[in-house]
């Protein structure tokens, strides 16, 4: 519980992920964003987004509501495609592959880039089938190894003991926090390389928040995280890179400690000091 209150003056790295910045610097670049511009119809929603993200990073996207964080996040796995009038310019590449290209295998992209939403969204099927839904869709494993995948994924999120005996039960009987962990386990089961988290803990109690945050720290460096959050404390606690969006622009982007302690732009200063948003 103490981790929930981070005193950055004492120790700026307290509660930060196990991965040291030095190892991240050596890692390959997994996500590259170049001059990204996103809009709906004649309206430009985000512009001038650039980012080089190394494997194993945890990036938090912060900024006031409507600043374009979620739109950016959802363009990485092309979830905005269905919105009418949506368009993009620029480039997003994941491991060298152009995400915005019309030729990309969307299903494969989404297997590689998982997503966790604001509220838990279990599917209307048993806990076990929830975990296996992605595995089956992508035909990732033989039927004989399904049991292992279910167990492994649930163990990773620390849910195994709680649901071991009720795998065939409805997931909707679980608590909100457990449901969100189940959704995380479901995403992990298809072995993604990047996970997009859209305010994943905004509907959870502090203890569940801690559980999810600890998990994120444990899952790097295999998985790279991009987290939209309205909690500045959470951004400080979990991320090593922070992007501050303001009014559709990427105002400032850099190491989390720098954004929070020594921001360059006055808007960033204003926001991270808690006087806005």
């Amino acid at each position: 519980m103490q981790d929930l209150v981070v005193n950055t003056e004492d120790d700026p790295h307290k509660g930060q992920p196990a991965t040291e910045p030095s190892t991240i610097e050596l890692a390959e670049i997994i996500l590259n964003v170049q001059d990204l511009q996103i809009g709906f119809g004649s309206k430009v929603v985000i512009e001038e987004v650039n980012l080089d993200l190394r494997k194993g990073s945890i990036v938090s996207l912060i900024g006031p509501t409507g600043s374009g964080k979620t739109t950016f996040l959802r363009s990485i796995n092309r979830m905005n495609d269905k919105v009418s009038g949506f368009w993009t310019k620029g480039h997003i590449t994941i491991s060298g592959k152009e995400v915005l290209s019309p030729d990309i295998d969307l299903l494969e992209l989404r297997r590689n880039v998982g997503m966790l939403f604001q509220r838990a969204n279990p599917f209307p099927m048993s806990i076990r089938e929830n975990i296996l839904s992605g595995v089956k869709a992508h035909k990732l494993a033989k039927k004989s190894s399904h049991d292992d995948i279910v167990r492994d994924s649930l163990e990773k999120v620390g849910l195994w003991k709680a649901v071991e005996k009720r795998l065939s039960d409805s997931p909707f009987r679980l608590s909100g926090g457990q449901q969100q962990l189940l959704c995380l386990a479901r995403s992990l089961a298809v072995q993604p390389r990047v996970l997009l988290l859209d305010e994943p803990t905004s509907a959870l109690d502090p203890i569940s928040v801690e559980a999810v945050e600890n998990l994120i720290s444990k899952l790097v460096p295999e998985i790279t995280f991009i987290v939209v959050t309205h909690s500045l404390a959470q951004a400080k606690r979990i991320s090593n890179h922070t992007m501050f969006f303001y009014d559709g622009k990427l105002m400032e982007s850099g190491p989390t400690s720098k954004i929070f302690e020594d921001p360059e732009m006055p808007e960033t200063q204003y926001y991270v000091s808690g006087r806005m948003g």
Binding site: M79, E108, R111, M115, F117, N121, F123, G134, A137, H138
Partner: peptide, 24 residues
């Protein structure tokens, strides 16, 4: 949110309909 979750997991439109929409 639930249908989006299935799409974001890489399920096809038909799989989303069959696995999420119909059971719901």
């Amino acid at each position: 949110l639930t249908e989006d979750g299935a799409s974001a997991l890489g399920l096809t439109q038909w799989e989303v309909t069959r696995n999420v929409t119909f059971p719901w």
